[in-house]
Design a binder for these strands. Structure first.
Length: 584
RNA sequence: GCUCCCAUAGCUUAACGGAUAAAGCAACGGUCUUCUAAACCGUAGAGUGUUGGUUCGAUUCCAACUGGGAGCGCCA
């Protein structure tokens, strides 16, 4: 089932092939930015006119003539310098809404070429409780996984946890000195983090401790039995505790292959890279350098200093024999290629690591994985009140657990006020869905590239473009069905007569475009925007058009309209990892 | 020093190279005997940091500049 845009795209493409060979590049049809001009527009006449040095309005007229779109659109209007504006016919809109009433996918087409896509997100450190800094990767990655899965791709959600880095040297050293098995069991994060902080502080001033910690790490990486056993305990308790928060967040992974999983492969990876001439020894370490194939300005292995380009290598083995995360990342790329046959890997990681990923991706290309699409889907930083990234050491971080609890708490207070008649059980259940939804939505609804200052009010807002607003539209529709005593919409034809009916019906058909756009750009905020618009149009329809008191044919049509709207809202929220409730 | 990111209404943001730049919040004024007012309607509020360029057309692309942030060899 095509979206209206896709339908018009196909029709325009057909006419363009005939009229203007060789055809200018697609896409040709986009939504009108201003609905007063129509529903969709094509500027292909303008593009072609430049190419052919012809009058764009004449070409637009020719194109209008050649188009076969009577069943979809009114006669297209030539406007401005040579646009063709399309206005969808109400009868077409009504038919299409009715078709979506019978379609589980609500008119969202399946990808023409499904891919195996690894999505790498969340990636917490097992020695540190998840805090607000992990929110974006987790929520964004989960939404992207759901969206790509719905589009028919084979999604492999992989939590690349930090269970192996330098920090573990310090933790092992500290745990041996003053660790407590009981504390570890009851509060793994609290205990390990306290040890880590303490040793880290000591190591700053005491070189002997710094060295000792490094030795512990090397021992661990070389398979020392005692260190290995301790580490396995850290891992087990930490994973159990992580599972609790993921459960609460409603986030799931197909795999949790952390850094340690690749440990055994690291020497071999380094050896291969050296043997193939990609990496070489440098100052006791082993590193990948520029191969000189890129222009210096674009080469991630070069940086300019005082007009001279100097090397900016990617270190894959430290001079003490330990490995860096770049090594693990390279081993991970190979594994994902060989084991998952991934055609695409999406890294949902903080934007501060852009340089690292540019180097990593280029190294992977030179290593022979150039046919795998590697995407760094980066996001801005959550800042503290001082406009600096929220950091653990400053003691200013907000635990993810606390954030979720606060969200539920605030939601509960509002529910208590608005629906005092609800039982406590019900109230708590609603608070969970509404509070968590608001929290996730706040992060998803804005452009991921922007930094923002952490703020309870912003993150837990319940008005405006928020999850509760969208959830509420769903609730109102369900209330109508409840009152009517209906489980589902009747078999009925759709009549779009009132302006608010037309606007709502029209919007419903764009669901597929919005999901596709969110996927193409890795930006779920497009989907949020769509759902907010849809909910707004529903609320307007709800004000203007009584459903249950309307005469039979109109009533049934409005029930269908409501049903498709409800299912679209529910599906859309689901793709964002947000649930709905039947009442709120 | 170099590289990357950001700059739009009082605040937070949107705008898939297009037409008179769009929302939410906050402010002000209306609407519940009628499917849940977590709603709806209305008023006021910016010409997109600056200067140029490309284009029929620029918030969007390019260059320079200003301001803010981040990154740049053994942390991840």
């Amino acid at each position: 089932m095509n979206t209206p845009r896709q339908e018009l795209e196909a029709r325009v493409a057909q006419a363009v092939q005939k009229l203007f060979p060789p055809a200018p590049p697609a896409p040709y049809v986009r939504p009108c930015p201003d609905p007063r001009h129509g529903d969709f527009q094509t500027n292909v006449a303008l593009v072609q006119a430049k190419e052919a040095k012809a009058n764009p309005r004449d070409l637009a007229a020719k194109l209008a003539e050649a188009l076969e779109i009577d069943d979809v659109s009114e006669k297209p209007e030539i406007a401005g310098p040579g646009f063709l504006n399309f206005r969808l016919k109400p009868i077409y809109l009504a038919e299409q809404v009715a078709r979506r009433g019978k379609d589980d996918r609500l008119g969202v087409p399946v990808a023409a070429k499904p891919e195996a896509i690894v999505i790498d997100y969340s990636s917490p450190n097992i020695a540190k409780e998840m805090h607000v800094g992990h929110l974006r990767s987790t929520v964004l990655g989960d939404a992207l996984a759901r969206i790509h899965c719905f589009l028919g791709h084979k999604v492999i959600a992989d939590n690349h946890i930090g269970d192996w880095g330098t920090g573990f040297g310090m933790i092992l050293f500290g745990f041996k000195r003053e660790g407590d098995a009981e504390k570890l069991r009851h509060d793994p994060f609290g205990h390990l983090e306290a040890i880590y902080r303490k040793i880290q502080a000591e190591a700053k001033t005491d070189e002997a401790i710094n060295e000792a910690a490094k030795r512990e790490l090397v021992l661990l990486q070389q398979g020392d039995a005692e260190n290995r056993k301790l580490w396995e305990q850290f891992l087990k308790y930490s994973l159990d505790a992580l599972e609790v928060i993921y459960q609460k967040l409603g986030v799931q992974f197909d795999y949790t292959l952390g850094e340690s999983f690749y440990n055994n492969a690291l020497p071999e990876v380094v050896a291969e890279l050296v043997q193939r001439g990609l990496a070489r020894e440098s100052e006791g370490a082993i590193a990948i350098f520029s191969d000189g194939t890129l222009p210096p300005k674009e080469d991630p292995f070069l940086v300019s200093e005082k007009g001279e380009f100097r090397n900016n290598p990617l270190l894959i083995r430290k001079s003490d024999g330990g490995y860096n995360y770049a090594t693990t990342d390279l081993a991970t790329i190979r594994y994902r290629h060989e084991h998952f046959h991934a055609q695409r890997v999406i890294y949902v990681v903080d934007g501060r690591q852009q340089m690292h990923f540019r180097q990593l991706f280029d190294a992977a290309r030179r290593w022979g994985y150039g046919d795998m699409k590697l995407e760094h889907v980066w996001f801005g930083t959550i800042l503290g009140p001082d406009k600096k990234p929220i950091k653990t050491r400053e003691g200013g971080d907000v635990k993810l657990k606390a954030l979720v609890a606060e969200a539920e708490d605030r939601a509960e207070k509002i529910i208590e006020e608005k629906r005092p008649e609800l039982s406590e059980t019900e109230r708590l259940r609603l608070a969970r869905v509404v509070g968590l939804g608001a929290l996730k939505y706040a992060d998803l609804a804005q452009n991921r590239n922007l930094d923002y200052v952490f703020n309870w009010e912003k993150l837990l807002a319940f008005d405006g473009n928020t999850a509760p607003y969208v959830q509420n539209a769903y609730v109102r529709i369900r209330a109508i069905f409840r009152k009517a005593g209906l489980e589902e919409a009747p078999e009925a034809s759709v009549i779009l007569a009132e302006p608010t009916e037309l606007a709502l019906g029209r919007k419903l058909l764009d669901f597929g475009d919005s999901v596709q756009l969110a996927a193409d750009e890795y930006r779920p905020h497009y989907l949020c925007l769509y759902l907010f618009d849809l909910a707004t149009l529903f609320h307007k329809f709800y004000e203007a058009c009584p459903v249950l008191t309307a005469e039979a044919a109109v009533r049934d049509s409005r029930l269908v309209l409501g049903d498709v709207t409800a299912r679209t809202l529910r599906q859309g929220l689901h793709l964002l990892g947000i649930d709905v409730v039947e009442q709120m």
